[in-house]
Design a binder for these strands. Structure first.
Lengths: 211, 211
DNA sequence: GGATCAATGAACAATATTGTCAATAGCTCC
DNA sequence: GGAGCTATTGACAATATTGTTCATTGATCC
């Protein structure tokens, strides 16, 4: 007895999207939370509210909170990969434009909070294997350019790989703590300081390539 | 009526520490959690279990979860500062030992998970102002050594500051994602690879100083 | 030994969060 | 218009987490 209270027959209009659109909408909201609070900070109610649905709807489309998180992580990693590839390719093959390339990658990492996502994932112990982020391609391309620029140089691929790793570390970490560190080191604050730092880094790396 | 059920007079021996010892014990347990799961991942029950007390005891000593987290963050930042200072001082003033210094700082950042704590804090939006971490001192010391080494050089303090920032970014970020990145870049995995990378970085920075 | 003080924990309360279920309501096809 | 499908949601359940209360108990002081 006392069957579940039937609805009072109120008429709040209900929108209905097809499954794919709903999933995309929810994933968008989830990704925003991912950037800000990380995987473990994602809350179904907040995601649902941001997406403009109720939280059972989220569960209906993704099965569980865990599956939702996995889905958004997977989608984010693909997006990160794509944005990095385009950022690098947009800089052209001219390595004298290394500065522009660093700027492109840096903005790609900062906007949409991709750098934050990478750090969240690493801190929380999620695996980021070669399927997700491909550094070897960057290394190969960079090394080819380097050899083309200095045909007689005795630059090893190992050296180029380490240079790429250094730049990656600086850009990923820089996206979240360069402001703090630059300010703290006596260099000014603001985006200008970070931009100048990248410019300086580009010159440093080029000088290393030319050494 | 029905007053709270009195204890069944069981006799589990109860240890009793003075407040400072208890606080230290609890802070130790909290810091371990901080390194692994970050500030927002700290749970009173887990901390209490690790410390061997009940969770009301934790609240008794710290007032609230938030105050506990603030206390452990404050203590961790002081510890980080101290360990970095000793790591740098232990490397001596000889800048040809830059490699040793980078190794010392790197191990200081990795052991006890100090690098992880720094990144957790930045990601979760906690302020790390100049009171906590002092880079200007490192910059000043480094610049003085640089000038002493190359008295006629026209190295600016700005350049030295940027070099220090680059090294800091590489070491902090490297502590958590160097293994992934090195492996991903085609350089091997394991601590050996990271150590080689730091050695390479030391040579790069010294070369820059000598340029 | 006895009194006093503080640390401790069992039980409870309150809220947050995830997940379940069944009824409702858009949408498409006929 | 009607039937079928399923996206949607209100209500509920179950657990997790933080915080409170109070009796107990270890330690110190006299």
């Amino acid at each position: 007895m006392l069957a579940r209270m039937p609805k009072p027959a109120k008429g709040k209009p209900r929108r209905r999207l097809d499954a794919d659109a709903a999933r995309a909408l929810i994933l968008d909201a989830t990704e925003k939370r991912l950037v800000v609070v990380g995987p473990s900070g994602i809350r179904l109610q907040e995601v649902a509210a941001d997406a403009g649905v109720s939280h059972p709807t989220v569960l209906h489309h993704f099965g569980s909170r865990d599956l939702l998180v996995k889905a958004v992580i997977s989608r984010s990693l693909h997006a990160i990969n794509a944005s990095l590839v385009t950022a690098i390719e947009a800089s052209g093959g001219d390595e004298s434009r290394l500065e522009a390339m660093l700027d492109n990658v840096a903005t790609a990492l900062e906007e949409s909070g991709h750098a934050r996502v990478i750090l969240w994932l690493v801190l929380e112990g999620h695996r980021i294997d070669g399927t997700d982020v491909r550094l070897t391609h960057v290394v190969d391309a960079t090394h080819a350019l380097r050899l083309a620029r200095r045909p007689r140089g005795k630059a090893t691929r190992e050296d180029t790989a380490r240079t790429v790793v250094l730049a990656s570390l600086a850009l990923v970490a820089g996206a979240v703590l360069a402001p703090t560190m630059l300010e703290n080191a006596g260099l000014g604050g603001g985006p200008r300081s970070a931009s100048d730092f990248r410019k300086w880094l580009a010159r440093l790396l080029l000088a290393h390539f030319d050494a």
